[in-house]
């Protein structure tokens, strides 16, 4: 009975959300996704800047977080002594427990000035020829948001990878060493190779988290509605624009458009999480 009620609740939520955004859906249709203008005054709405912002920040975050998370997971479970590993494990989990508003606050007052004064000159002198790193930096912007996201999703990915690595029997690892493999070769053969799809599952889970993260991003991304190529420029994500504009939406169409974005965000995160679970499920019977 209760189960039915919960399922009904979920379905009704989806319907309510759909109803909320119906005006925007019927006015802009599917073209909303690639509309580039977001102007509450002229009631013209398009979500492309936010969709691109979400994709860029999540992608850059994954690029940074994936190798780090996997190495940390390996370090904890295979390389360092058990006790130290346990402590580092708790520290990594603690990153996940820090409220995102605190990340945001730290991002504004500590990370953003660092990006503006230290990271940007360095990036410009080394990679400045790329359009990705051109234009002025205000500190806050896409890069700051990506870095914060990377920090926030490291625990998700690395905890999951540790779970995956844990399924490898000790004897299999010893067998590799007994064949004259170095520690690195042992890890490559018996851990990384069979865990590949499991690790992908973890990365996709991390992506799901990055896509939906709101406050920390809203505070450091700069909230610009314009499209920009440079990751030093300010931008916006789907989640951040909702957080910033929802409570003071100026008119019904503005609100409906934000609802539409929420609906898109919901669909995308559900799909990404579903994909992660599918990969994990496909992978697990092999062990």
């Amino acid at each position: 009975m209760l189960a039915i009620a919960i399922i009904m609740l979920i379905v009704s939520l989806a319907i309510l959300l759909f109803k909320l955004s119906l005006p925007a859906i019927s006015k802009f249709g599917i073209g909303f996704i690639w509309g580039q203008v977001w102007n509450p005054i002229s009631e013209e709405f398009g979500a492309l800047p936010f969709i691109l912002g979400t994709l860029t920040t999540s992608f850059v975050a994954l690029l940074i977080a994936t190798p780090l998370s996997i190495s940390v997971a390996l370090f904890i479970s295979e390389i360092c002594p058990k006790k130290i590993g346990h402590i580092i494990g708790i520290f990594v989990e603690m990153i996940a427990a820090v409220p995102s508003i605190v990340f945001g606050l730290w991002g504004i007052f500590s990370l953003a000035p660092w990006i503006q004064n230290s990271a940007t000159p360095f990036l410009k002198s080394t990679l400045g020829f790329l359009p990705l790193f051109q234009g002025p930096s205000y500190g806050i912007g896409v890069l700051a948001a990506s870095l914060i996201l990377a920090i926030m999703i490291i625990p998700t990915i690395s905890s999951f990878c540790r779970e995956v690595f844990r399924t490898i029997p000790l004897q299999t690892k010893e067998a590799a060493l007994a064949l004259g493999a170095t520690r690195f070769e042992m890890i490559k053969i018996t851990i990384l190779r069979p865990s590949f799809s499991g690790m992908i599952g973890g990365v996709v889970l991390g992506l799901g988290r990055a896509l939906g993260e709101t406050m920390a991003v809203a505070m450091v991304i700069g909230n610009s509605h314009r499209l920009a190529i440079s990751i030093l420029a300010p931008g916006s994500t789907m989640a951040s624009v909702i957080a910033n504009e929802y409570a003071e939406a100026s008119n019904a169409m503005h609100m409906a458009s934000l609802g539409y974005i929420a609906l898109l965000l919901l669909v995308v995160t559900l799909m990404v999480n579903g994909l992660a679970r599918f990969i994990i499920w496909k992978w697990s019977p092999k062990i």
């Binding site: 919960i6 399922i7 979920i10 939520l13 309510l16 959300l17 109803k19 909320l20 889970l205 799901g208 988290r209 896509l211 939906g212 993260e213 709101t214 989640a239 909702i242 957080a243 929802y246 609802g259 929420a262 965000l265 919901l266 995160t269 559900l270 990404v272 999480n273 579903g274 679970r277």
Partner: peptide
């Protein structure tokens, strides 16, 4: 599965749920 997916819904979207509800 629904509960699993629920944990993955961004909190901002949950806020909108509560708003419409």
């Amino acid at each position: 599965h629904a509960i699993d997916l629920f944990t993955g819904i961004p909190s901002i979207v949950i806020g909108i749920f509560a708003y419409v509800l």
